[in-house]
Design a protein around this nucleic acid. Structure first.
Length: 288
DNA sequence: AATAGCTGCAACCGCGTTCTC
DNA sequence: GGAGAACGCGGTTGCAGCTAT
């Protein structure tokens, strides 16, 4: 557990009403965490204002809820955002925009706050480096036609590497079904009524796509999407939605199909090489 | 070694929506 | 049906730790 006491001072809420209650704000202490965890273990969550009082916490209900949901919940998945998660975030954000909570529903163990922070600190950083607006069509195209294919490449590479080393042993000893084979790539239907959820195909569809030189996007059985190796990118000639052809991105979280790819993958953040950036900057300057 | 600038992320805030009485 | 409370979401802030100079 993080030593929250190490962070900043604890301040009192200024408003008179809350001042009377002697409410605390700022970083949570270990003691407060224990109080909250223990109380929820016995009484369950919800009714946060009364929960805060009953648990003896001098916090607002909001603060307790946030602490629980974003940090203390037992199913919180900590650590770096994996390549698969990055891919999913990019895809879902392209569909839903800043609907962080909705996006988080598709990344078990990740909170909306974490995804939001990831977007602001990593994705927006790339947009800034490219000197373009994160909401611009050009940047969205970059994400879709360069960044996402790069991620797919790296997922494939990690998958291959894992398969040739320890994965076989894991499969043999744990009887884990190998992931993303055509045979087991059955469609998963999720509970939500959103169009995305209606048919969530496994990532095998996605990784069937081939990428040449980072800019050529093609598919064994699908039409070309506008990028060609050695040629300039023609943004005006792009398909409206590459994934309409390449298959909906989606991870099968409900089976073992997902977990093998999560293990041992490269977690570094260098998604776009210097060459990529130079190329893209030239593209942006050309189009401005 | 000092420090200025940057990064990542936990926590807060405001506001719209949903729930409860 | 209405009012107030509670909840949930997206945007923003503040600060510890890291990096560059």
């Amino acid at each position: 557990m993080e030593d929250v006491k190490a962070r900043g001072c604890i301040r009192k809420i200024q408003s008179s009403e809350e001042d009377q209650l002697d409410l605390i704000r700022g970083p949570w202490t270990v003691e407060e965490d224990f109080k909250l965890i223990n109380y929820i273990a016995v009484h369950g969550e919800g009714r946060w204002n009364s929960l805060a009082r009953s648990a003896g916490l001098k916090r607002t209900g909001k603060s307790c809820r946030l602490r629980w949901l974003n940090y203390l919940r037992p199913d919180i998945r900590r650590g770096n955002i994996t390549l698969e998660e990055q891919l999913l975030i990019l895809e879902l954000h392209s569909r839903w925009g800043n609907r962080w909570s909705k996006i988080a529903q598709h990344l078990p163990g990740r909170t909306d706050n974490e995804i939001k922070n990831y977007w602001r600190t990593r994705v927006q950083k790339h947009a800034k480096q490219l000197k373009c607006d994160v909401n611009s069509k050009q940047f969205k195209d970059t994400v879709r036609y360069l960044w996402m294919p790069r991620l797919v490449e790296r997922i494939q590479a990690a998958s291959v590497a894992a398969a040739t080393s320890t994965t076989a042993q894991v499969y043999a000893t744990q009887q884990v079904t190998p992931s993303y084979t055509p045979e087991n790539s059955s469609t998963v239907t999720a509970a939500s009524s959103d169009s995305f959820d209606a048919q969530v195909s496994p990532v095998s569809d996605l990784t069937n796509c081939t990428y040449n030189n980072g800019f050529h996007v093609s598919n064994n059985s699908n039409p070309d999407y506008g990028f060609h190796a050695g040629s300039q990118v023609d943004y005006s000639d792009l398909s409206d939605n590459y994934y309409d052809h390449c298959g909906d991105v989606g991870m099968d979280y409900q089976t073992n199909n997902y977990q093998p790819l999560l293990d041992g993958c490269d977690l570094s953040d260098n998604l776009l090489s210097a060459e990529d950036f130079l190329f893209l900057q030239q593209q942006f300057n050309f189009n401005m």
